[in-house]
């Protein structure tokens, strides 16, 4: 295929020697490193936040949560070539009050606060319990990726939200969630070079088979797609897959 020989590689001669499949495998591995990197960073953050909240021994305040979370968000959103458009923490009911949640979430390089008005509401938990990015990690106690979806709460952008439960005790209830919003637009810039090396119709899809980024012009982000067999399947992160060849549904 023309992709493998024309792509900028070490040199045209050595690129020819690398079998197509091996080059594609390397490209898929790069995508996996990117997505897994986000997932691992989030898991580490959840663990740190959990111990710090546990150390507050039941006296958790909004100000203390802000102080704990904001520096990490700052680091994530200001990372050069980073993917995070926004990030933060949302308390489960019980951490600060019975019906009360608490949102410590910021977006953009200027750290614009998200939904902070809700922190003045005594029943703010009602705002999050139905949202997939909050409900699933709280119910299952496991990490989750929501989307791609249009995020009405924060950016009104097309995003993926990676969320992870936060525990203050290993066997305890979920105290809250930490999460990172990744815009599909930024992911597309990072993923397209790798997808092009995999195939002219290579597609990164979520667990539901919805395209996140596709090299094919007739598959848009958000479209339901399927592998066009026979094709190669590469796992990317915990739940995503790259199909070397895909068709829109």
């Amino acid at each position: 295929m023309s992709e493998t020989t024309s792509t900028a590689g070490p040199s045209a001669a050595s690129a020819k020697r690398v079998p197509v499949e091996k080059a594609a495998g390397q490209a898929a591995a790069e995508l996996d490193v990117t997505i897994s990197g986000i997932e691992h960073r989030l898991a580490a953050w959840a663990a740190e936040a959990g111990s710090a909240l546990a150390a507050m021994s039941g006296k958790v305040t909004g100000t203390a949560v802000d102080k704990l979370i904001r520096p990490v968000v700052e680091e994530l959103v200001q990372l050069p070539d980073g993917y995070a458009a926004g990030a933060g923490f949302i308390a489960n009911a019980g951490l600060l009050g019975p019906e009360r949640s608490y949102i410590a979430w910021w977006q953009g390089p200027d750290l614009e606060p998200v939904d902070a008005l809700a922190n003045f509401s005594p029943n703010s938990i009602s705002r999050y319990v139905k949202a997939e990015w909050f409900r699933i990690p709280v119910e299952t106690g496991r990490a989750h990726v929501t989307g791609p979806y249009v995020d009405f709460l924060c950016t009104d952008e097309y995003v993926l939200t990676f969320t992870h439960p936060v525990f203050t005790r290993p066997d305890g209830l979920v105290a809250g969630i930490v999460g990172i919003d990744i815009t599909v637009q930024r992911l597309e810039r990072g993923a397209m070079p790798a997808l092009r090396r995999i195939g002219a119709r290579a597609t990164l899809a979520n667990a539901d088979g919805r395209a996140v980024v596709s090299a094919a012009s007739d598959i848009d982000a958000g479209d339901l797609a399927a592998p066009d067999e026979p094709c190669r399947h590469y796992p990317v992160g915990r739940t995503f897959t790259v199909w070397s060849d895909a068709a829109g549904l």
């Binding site: 979806y149 249009v150 009405f152 009104d156 097309y158």
Partner: peptide, 15 residues
């Protein structure tokens, strides 16, 4: 409906 359409521009305009 706008959320199901998954278009950020259309959703913003609707809001």
């Amino acid at each position: 409906v706008a959320a199901i359409a998954r278009s950020a521009r259309l959703a913003r305009e609707l809001i």
